[in-house]
Structure formats: C-alpha cells, structure tokens
C-alpha cells in the first residue's frame, strides 16, 4: 500500500474504524440530549495507557474532521508530555491543523483546565475524565449510584460537602467539585479546579466528557445551566490568589506554583500557557519577567 500524498498514516482517518466512531457519536448525541447523564459506551483500547486520556482521545477521534483545528492542553499547558503526544497523535492519524491559540481552535482537548480565553460558539471542549461518577467515593456500588441518579437522590453529595465543612471549617473540595446540570443530573466536571466551574455555566461551547477506563461519555450542550452544589450558609466560592502572575501580571486567572530553587524560592504563573504568552506578546509584564531585569544590567 502506498503512502497517500497527504502523508497521513495508513490507519483509518483519526485512528478509530468507522463503526467505532459511529458508536461513540451515538453515545455523544445521547449525552447531549440528556445533559450530565453518563452514557455507557464500548471504550476501545488506545495506543496509550489508561489515565493518559484514552476517553478524551476517543471522543476527539470521533468528532474530528479534516478541517478542524486542534488544541490540546494538559493542566492548562500546551507543552507538556501528554499534550504534545496527543497533538502529535492526531497530526499523524488525522493530518489536522494544530494550534496552541485558544481562539483559533475548533476542538480543544483538555486535561483539567478550561482555557482563560472565553470560548465561543462552534468550539468544542473535550475533557479527559478519570472517574465520571461523582458519588463513587461515598457509594461504591454502581447499581446503587445509577439508581440514585435515576431517582434524583442526591443527598449523599451534600454529605460529602458537610464532611468538608465539619473537618476544615469550609468546603475544602478544590477540584472535581460536583455540579448540577440543567437542574437535573449531578455531574463530576472531571478534576478541573473549581476555579473553572463558573466557566461551564451557560458556556457557548459544547463540552464533551470521555472516561476511557470507566467507559462513560457525558456532555454539557452549549448554553446549559451548570450550578456548583453548596450550602445556604456556606456558598460556593472559587480560589483567589493574592498575587498576579509573575510573568504576565494577569489577575483573576488560575495560577500554578513553580519551584525555582531548593531554598524555598517559588513563583506563581498562569496555568494557561497560551494565555500567558499572548499577554506577554502584548507587552504585559510580571515582577519576574526577564525584561524587567534588563535595565539593571
């Protein structure tokens, strides 16, 4: 078999065979029709280990077309191993254009962050989900959790939040913070920081969630209500940072701590690398930006 001129690998387009993609698309459509409901699907073996985004990759493979522009982020960064290898994978098996710019992408596969740049209509955010069941750690039986979803018995979710307050004086859950979708299903937004929960609410972008090992797909269609659970006297709050990004000076964004040396030196920088780079290119500077040091030399 000769290699096509497009230099696409001799796999089927986007790695999965057409029947599999069809099966996954049906699960996605069902998920979109019932926002927040976990649709079982026949998850395939992918050429990567579980936990590296097999669910997200299958969802992306099922929806990607030759005209799509793909962005992959891992904890907000475009340049970490997971993001680089998934991006390379789709370049190889689907020959699609890739980008690191949020605004240019049509499909963004993400591991645990929603980009800082607001998403727009027509964009699709694909989450890699390790454990799709928000009730799992309190109720180990799958038969029981399914029944609880079916009968809308979500008291247990508040038991978890109650425990947080009893132990820590506040809701100490900072990621995988449970949300209620369109007033019906309680959903685990994958381990994104709760900082990003408000971005899911009425988002113009389509949000798809794929859990490869657990074989579940769920979805939040555009402009859907996503409400974080809380108590009347302990309302939902997002993380706040006391200092801006050390490189671009951005405020009201999610920051990562970066260790600088073994003497306790550290700095906080944007977790969304594209956002940080874009701001720096526009001339924004933080207190540790290299440019600030230059005048002293």
């Amino acid at each position: 078999m000769s290699t096509p001129a497009t230099d696409i690998a001799t796999y089927n387009f986007a790695y999965l065979d057409e029947q599999t993609k069809r099966m996954i698309r049906r699960a996605i459509l069902k998920g979109i029709a019932i926002p927040g409901y976990q649709v079982p699907f026949a998850s395939r073996e992918m050429p990567m280990p579980y936990g590296w985004g097999t669910g997200g990759v299958q969802v992306t493979a099922a929806i990607i077309g030759p005209d799509d522009v793909l962005k992959v982020i891992d904890q907000g960064a475009d340049d970490t191993t997971n993001a680089v290898s998934i991006r390379a994978f789709f370049q190889k098996v689907a020959d699609v254009a890739v980008t690191t710019e949020t605004a240019k992408a049509t499909i963004i596969q993400t591991r645990h962050r929603i980009p800082e740049h607001p998403l727009t209509e027509g964009q699709t955010l694909v989450y890699q989900v390790p454990i799709p069941e928000p009730l799992r750690f309190l109720e180990p039986r799958e038969t029981e959790t399914r029944k609880m979803h079916a009968l809308e018995e979500y008291g247990l979710m508040h038991v978890k939040l109650y425990e947080d307050i009893a132990r820590h004086g506040r809701i100490a859950t900072t990621y995988a913070y449970p949300v209620k979708v369109e007033g019906r299903y309680v959903m685990d937004p994958s381990p994104t920081p709760k900082f990003d929960n408000p971005k899911m609410h009425m988002s113009p972008a389509l949000q798809l969630f794929g859990a490869g090992r657990e074989k579940r797909i769920y979805a939040v269609p555009p402009f859907t209500k996503v409400v974080s659970l809380d108590f009347e006297d302990h309302p939902f709050e997002i993380q706040a940072f006391d200092q801006p990004c050390a490189l671009c000076g951005a405020e009201q964004v999610y920051l990562d701590e970066v260790i600088l040396d073994d003497k306790g030196g550290h700095m906080f920088v944007c977790s969304d690398t594209d956002h940080c780079e874009t701001r720096q290119a526009c001339g924004h500077r933080g207190h540790l930006s290299p440019d600030i040091l230059e005048p002293a030399q």
């Binding site: 008291g155 247990l156 038991v159 109650y162 307050i165 809380d230 108590f231 009347e232 006297d233 302990h234």
Partner: peptide, 13 residues
C-alpha cells in the same frame, strides 16, 4: 444529617 440533606435541607448550621 444524611436524611435531612436527602429531603432537601441545605443549611449547614
């Protein structure tokens, strides 16, 4: 408290 939360009590105090 579980039963109270199950029937919709949402006030921690």
């Amino acid at each position: 408290g579980e039963r109270l939360m199950a029937i919709g009590d949402r006030h921690y105090g």
